[in-house]
């Protein structure tokens, strides 16, 4: 079963880090991904640029609206994501607890939802 692990933290904490601390954190994340991959739990993942680089897109009445940043003011910002393969929630939570930024912010673990099968042409319901 697949779970998304969404990594959140306050970017201020990162900005306040020394270069060495930031370097160490990144190396720790790389090692973590290697471990997850070796154990067969890693499906995909990516770290994200800071929130100031984000752009939000909405389509309303056929019109595309583009605005700066995310819509809601939140305390913690989305910093990256993992897609994990785990047997059940307990295993997914255990894997998430070992993602290094869990110590700084929080990891939201969510089961993925499979979309229904593609409708074949001819069916109308």
């Amino acid at each position: 079963m697949k779970y998304a692990a969404l990594v959140y933290y306050q970017e201020q904490l990162i900005h306040a880090m020394s270069d060495q601390e930031w370097h160490d954190l990144n190396q720790e994340c790389i090692a973590g991904v290697e471990r997850l991959t070796a154990q067969g739990h890693y499906v995909a993942g990516q770290a994200l640029q800071p929130i100031e680089t984000a752009t939000t897109v909405r389509v309303r009445d056929g019109e595309t609206l583009i605005s700066d940043g995310p819509f809601a003011e939140t305390k913690e910002q989305l910093a990256g994501f993992y897609l994990l393969e785990a047997h059940d929630l307990n295993e997914a939570l255990q894997l998430a607890s070992r993602i290094p930024p869990a110590r700084l912010g929080s990891i939201e673990v969510r089961p993925i939802r499979e979309l229904p099968p593609k409708q074949t042409t001819g069916e109308t319901s």
């Binding site: 047997h87 059940d88 929630l89």
Partner: peptide, 10 residues
Amino acid sequence: RHANIPYEVP
């Protein structure tokens, strides 16, 4: 059901 919380004794 959806998050697959296992039915097990830790």
